[in-house]
Design a protein around this nucleic acid. Structure first.
Lengths: 223, 223
DNA sequence: TGCCATGTTCATCCGCCGTTCAGGATCGCG
DNA sequence: CGCGATCCTGAACGGCGGATGAACATGGCA
């Protein structure tokens, strides 16, 4: 999962980035409104944390532009506690959730997880796929009921693919979502991790689509 | 466990803090309503002792604001015996328990323990987890029936983790709950105590989740 | 006052994890 | 059937997070 954080306060932004990286996200940061708008329109983020209290720029407008451009990624808005009216306007502009400063990092992470989950069309924090079962809240995976130990990257890759059941994911797409901006795109880490996942979960959970990428089959009801 | 005490009377607040520290809690104290509101919103308390009889500020309003902001930590209200009507209003505002002054410290501690336990979803004061058994009332721990001698911090760390079975607890989260406001966050005491606990209880009771923290497995029903 | 238990810091070591690389296997296509 | 492209896999290694032992500080208690 890859996030964009739009925040200009150096202290807060550092805290945000640290906490979110800790939580296993790839994070891009900007404090500039124009750059935010550009990044949000060109890079494939899974969610955005947008502080409305930026000087000189109007975060709300940025959000509106994204929505006008057809961008649907979930956006969580940060605002000062007394700017209560922002909340309403924020939701109108297309925000998915709202958090008043000050707040606790754990709460932010929890809410982010929630809106990301919802945006994938998953009501529950648990994704099942055949013998596989992924608990996105506890970050736990079981296959046929038996718990499986995954490393951080392994889990992130699996979780991302599980959020896109049935869709063929190209290697570049996966790389873009697992790593932040500057990462060597022609590396074969993805293949390595796919291999390791297959070894741990069984060779049948991830299918190779030659020339295109990988796919996790969604549980079919024989129809 | 970390508590916030909101009390302005110097004598009483000293007694409170002493008794609660004695009982093994990390305690922050304030006599100021605004500061109380701020602290309650930003620091991760496991419970709050709130005196309604503060001059100039309305404790009830503070509580209401917390609840509006989505804070769910248990709150125990203190009030003068004759302000009986406060009791009803207090519960309406989201209080979890109520104590009339004057009271005995032992009763306060007992009630606090109870609401903290309930807030974690534990009906019983005894937590079992595999071969481990923790009596939160007597502060006693046995493994396979054999009593184990733990020091104060060791017990507090274990108890806090036991209240969050199955959840991965980050080092910062643990530090925040075991110590009060000003404590060096990048210290490795937690790791040291985890090590000591593992030596006394067996290496398998606390699992390391690399990069995230520690977890005590909840007893699984091998389904 | 001196000892012991407890809590904290520090320095060091170990093992895991992420990444890279190279060689081998497999597939699709002519 | 052969060739090139694509994918898989095992091994290696550098870095970092966590573990550990011991030293140091503090405070209670005899």
């Amino acid at each position: 999962m890859r996030l964009l954080v739009v925040e200009d306060d150096p202290d807060l932004s550092e805290q945000l980035v640290d906490a979110l990286r800790e939580a296993g996200y790839a994070v891009d940061l900007t404090g500039d409104g124009e750059e935010a708008e550009f990044l949000g329109e060109t890079e494939p983020y899974d969610a955005v944390v947008l502080d409305l209290g930026l000087p000189n720029v109007d975060g709300m407008t940025v959000l509106e532009h994204w929505r006008e451009a057809g961008k649907t990624m979930p956006v969580l808005i940060l605002t000062a506690r007394d700017r209560w009216s922002d909340k309403v306007a924020g939701f109108d502009a297309g925000a998915d959730d709202y958090l008043a400063k000050p707040f606790r990092m754990e709460e932010l992470v929890a809410r982010l997880r929630a809106i990301i989950r919802r945006s994938g069309g998953h009501a529950s924090p648990i994704i099942e796929c055949g013998k596989l079962r992924i608990d996105t809240r506890a970050s736990r995976v079981t296959v046929d009921g038996a718990p499986v130990k995954l490393t951080g990257q392994e889990y992130r890759l699996l979780a991302y693919m599980a959020h896109n059941l049935g869709k063929v994911m190209s290697r570049t797409e996966l790389t873009e979502h697992l790593y932040d901006q500057d990462f060597d795109l022609d590396s074969n880490t993805i293949e390595v991790f796919i291999g390791r996942l297959r070894r741990k979960l069984g060779t049948d959970v991830i299918e190779t689509v030659r020339g295109l990428g990988y796919r996790m089959a969604e549980p079919e009801d024989g129809a």
